[in-house]
Nucleic acid binder design. Sequence first.
DNA 1: TTAATTGCAAACGGTTTGCATGGGC
DNA 2: GCCCATGCAAACCGTTTGCAATTAA
Lengths: 151, 151
Amino acid sequence: MVRPLVKNRLNQAGFRLTNPRSLVLDILRKTEEHLSAEDVYIQALNITPSIGLTTVYRALDLFVQIGMVQKYDFGEGKARYELTSNPLKREHHHHLVCIKCKTVIDYTNFMNEEIELMKKTEKALSKKHRFQIMHHNIHFYGLCNHCRDKD
Amino acid sequence: MVRPLVKNRLNQAGFRLTNPRSLVLDILRKTEEHLSAEDVYIQALNITPSIGLTTVYRALDLFVQIGMVQKYDFGEGKARYELTSNPLKREHHHHLVCIKCKTVIDYTNFMNEEIELMKKTEKALSKKHRFQIMHHNIHFYGLCNHCRDKD
DNA sequence: TTAATTGCAAACGGTTTGCATGGGC
DNA sequence: GCCCATGCAAACCGTTTGCAATTAA
């Protein structure tokens, strides 16, 4: 059980009225989407209208550094953030990115086969290219269900 | 056989002295690296000192649109470009990115097994998430041979 | 009271746009 | 002469930094 960092005052939205860091964390906890810094900021404004965008960036960076948050770049020219251990998701996952509406779907139901192969591939690459692989990103790009039907 | 867009005047570096587009293309042809727009621009300046960065961007965008050039984002906050059919490379490849020196290695010698699995995975994903997959990026991040030894 | 956190404004870096100039059919 | 291509400067957008004010320990 995690002891709240600060007193547990809640507002009507169920957020703790607290310091910006917990606020940012709560916003990330409450979503399944891949939020940009500005997305987080806009949500944060509803709770703490005095909060600054800079603070959101600093909080996000902090969480990325300690590994609580993953920072992703889907080629939009801005970063998107996602809780590492979002209880709604499996720990390890890849992404489906819609090139039209920019929706990102987490793709977790890969076959064991895939996990095995990735391990094997990483091993082979490490050896062949003398590269110490620390992590990988797999992004599939295409049209989502919704955008495929249109035009 | 491709007819040159313009007369074939060559300078001492072997580049055609020609319009910016062919210049940009030639620069991409002559390298195995993943150049940023500025990288291309700096090289272009040696050939045509009057060229503008804007023109380089426009040429790159054009080539990306018609599929001659791939635009990649390795999370550095700037794009990198690579000829699609670089004769030095296989058509389809993935990337090893050094998180320290930012070197990008093309990784082409994947096992057939991997290609098979990617196809299978794409098919399964298309079905399950009703996503029409058009392409994918696989990036491995880690430390290259060189950076691994240091500190 | 001392250190850390915050918000603001300005700077920054990569990319894009507006616009007037210039070069090729 | 017409139109597209080009270069410049300025705008733009996401992000970072400097700094002074505020807050927490």
